[in-house]
């Protein structure tokens, strides 16, 4: 085990996969000379050169499409979006091209590529830079979607994403890049589609993913002081979702809180709730409670932003509600 930041874990994953396979290249805005807008690609230009670490013009639609074309003829592109907010301009390539090429070609052209970048809100970046897009992306058949919340998961899931022969969306987080954690040494790859229990418990389950893992674990720690033992399930992959792991934790605790960063309507949490009612309705001792962002664009003002975001206090309150403690 080595302690490293989420940023360095991603960097190690990129470096290792680029060393392993010379079809893998990184393309995006500021990935090369600038060393990455968030320094995720630090040092890669120096090691791999400008053909494999490619700075692009500010053209999300264009360079996402360049990645699609390169993947069609056998390269393995990693397309970095400076943030997923900017990737809206590229969604035609992600949704209409990458996700559908295999299907509409009758199985002839698979798309071994990764689209990655930070997702969701950071601090006071206001409405256009503070959005969580996972439910949009996970909606699409033909994509896989991962949202690592720890450095170890960041490394293991990104490596798996690069090796997968399908288009994989990797949702990172600006607020995660400096988070430190233990990362296993060696060629550490986490299979896609596998959730992980990040904290075991008996009284209620918090089902979440991505940067909300840290919110859930802090909430669980607080609740433990009051004698409430919460299990935290990290979905890690949002498509395909690990439904058996969701069922297992609900059957164990009989109470569930679903925590996500984004908006409520058509959010990921709605899908989790549906799996629960479909697969283990009779195991529930209380209605499920969802915790999510307020149903507004993100405000700039610090106090309002804090009020809009899901946080530890809201999560603790939700757990207390499903446990009928208030």
């Amino acid at each position: 085990m080595t302690v490293m930041t989420y940023r360095d874990a991603l960097n190690a994953a990129l470096r290792e996969e680029m060393r392993r396979d010379d079809r893998v290249f990184l393309m995006g805005e500021e990935v090369a000379v600038y060393q990455g807008a968030y320094k995720v690609s630090k040092g890669l230009l120096q090691e791999f050169g400008e053909m494999r670490v490619v700075d692009t013009p500010i053209t999300e639609l264009g360079f996402a499409g360049v990645g699609v074309g390169a993947a069609m003829v056998g390269l393995r592109p990693i397309i970095e979006f400076m943030t997923w907010n900017f990737a809206l301009l590229a969604l035609d390539q992600v949704v209409n091209a990458a996700a559908k090429m295999l299907y509409m070609s009758g199985g002839q052209y698979n798309m071994p590529m990764v689209f990655r970048g930070p997702n969701g809100a950071a601090l006071q970046l206001a409405a256009q830079h503070s959005q969580a897009w996972e439910s949009w992306l996970a909606h699409i058949p033909g994509l896989k979607v991962v949202a690592p919340g720890t450095p170890a998961d960041a490394k293991g899931l990104l490596k798996a994403a690069v090796r997968d022969d399908n288009p994989v969306i990797v949702l990172e987080g600006e607020m995660l890049y400096n988070v430190k954690g233990e990362v296993p040494d060696g060629d550490f790859v986490i299979p896609l589609g596998k959730a992980e229990v990040k904290r075991a418990g008996t009284d209620a389950s918090i089902i979440t993913y991505g940067k909300m893992i840290n919110v859930a674990l802090t909430a669980a720690e607080q609740l433990a002081k009051d004698g409430v033992h919460v299990e935290v399930l990290d979905l890690r992959t949002l498509r395909p979702m690990d439904v058996p792991a969701i069922v297992a934790t609900v059957e164990k605790t009989n109470r569930a809180v679903v925590l996500e960063e984004g908006w409520e309507v058509c959010g990921m949490g709605a899908q989790v709730v549906d799996y629960i009612q479909r697969e283990c309705f009779d195991s529930l001792d209380a209605p499920i409670v969802r915790v999510h962002q307020a149903d507004t664009p993100m405000p700039y003002a610090k106090s309002l932003e804090k009020f809009a975001k899901p946080d530890v206090a809201k999560t603790v309150a939700a757990v207390r509600k499903v446990c009928y403690l208030d």
Partner: peptide, 24 residues
Amino acid sequence: LGGHGIVGGHIPIATGVAFAIKYR
């Protein structure tokens, strides 16, 4: 490499194929 249904959408894809040719 296909008929594509979104006007203009395949032009970046063609450019990516050309990138791959140069890459190799």
